[in-house]
Amino acid sequence: MFAREVDSSDIIKGALADVIFLPVDCEKGEGPAIAAKFSVRGYPTFYAVNGQGEPVERWIGYEGAEGWARSVAAARADTRTLVAKKTAFETAPTAALALSLANDAATGYDFPVSVKYFKQARELDPARADEYTGNIFMYMYYGADDGAFTFDEIRAEADRMLAAADAEAGDRVDIASMIVQVARKQDRVADAIPYLTKGLEAGATLPEDSPAARTVRSLKVDHALLVEKDAPKAVALRKAMLPENWEQDPKRLNQFAWWCLQNDVNLEEAEVLVMRAVELSEADGDRANYLDTAAEICLKRGNCEEAIARIRKAIELAPDREYFKEQLAKFEAALTQKKG
């Protein structure tokens, strides 16, 4: 999205007028080495560095031209290095420094530290509290994967966002989706149901071509599974989200089978479909991945022997992938436990 706008947005052109700009394709030419040098972990990542190559500001994601230009402006307004900014914050904290350090930490996927700085920015600059709360909620959501934040902490920030007067239907849908995902991972599904319900209510007001439309359809799947407890309905709704001819597309077949596995529904068909993906796929690495999905489904269905056979085939296809060997050990342990 940034690349599309870099040549068309006057805001971005204005921001670039007083800096040197270097796009780096991280998969071509010198890109991988430069990306490694800067510890890039996701795309797009932006760095502002001084003439010595020292980072002055860094941020991840593209939120639109205005936000991007603000980040460049922040770098130009305070050209101290991030290291110096961290030291300065200890003695003389400001919202601008907190924001720089929060973005720095988020770019390094250190979400607890990022959230800490965003909260400090919120205290130091109450006028932009809603903006910071959005960041806090989002990075708590990402951090939840590693157990860095509890459902209750994340829910508290969601409530702050939902209480904001300008929270629109699309926001409510996104928040509901994220809360449901965290709740499922942390075994708090019952606490997420009110958010799910309100998210669907908000989604009903959106047009079909809304950017949030796909998330609304996903919420309907969650509602069928978690509220109505109607697995066949959920499966049908999930299939309806897939593109035309998905049953001939190995990646889509695997994606659907994996969803079935994660939700412990429709496993018999899921196994058939993922084995079709194995047949249709031409790349050994992909076939190995699909066999891993098939093996996991076998395990879930109680067929440890077949799970072992399939993961052994995956290892043959991709002998360098340590993960598959770990999977084999897991399936063998399950078989031993079953027999024991």
């Binding site: 700009f21 996701g42 994601g61 989002m138 629109e168 996104d174 928040i175």
Partner: peptide, 28 residues
């Protein structure tokens, strides 16, 4: 309003949104 933060950043981190190559000629 729909938060550009959530819409944009989610796309980046979850979907791995990719940017196409941009000519750097103007910037030399």
């Amino acid at each position: 309003m729909r938060s550009p933060l959530l819409a944009g950043a989610l796309a980046v981190l979850i979907l791995g949104a990719a940017a196409a190559a941009t000519a750097a000629d103007d910037h030399g």
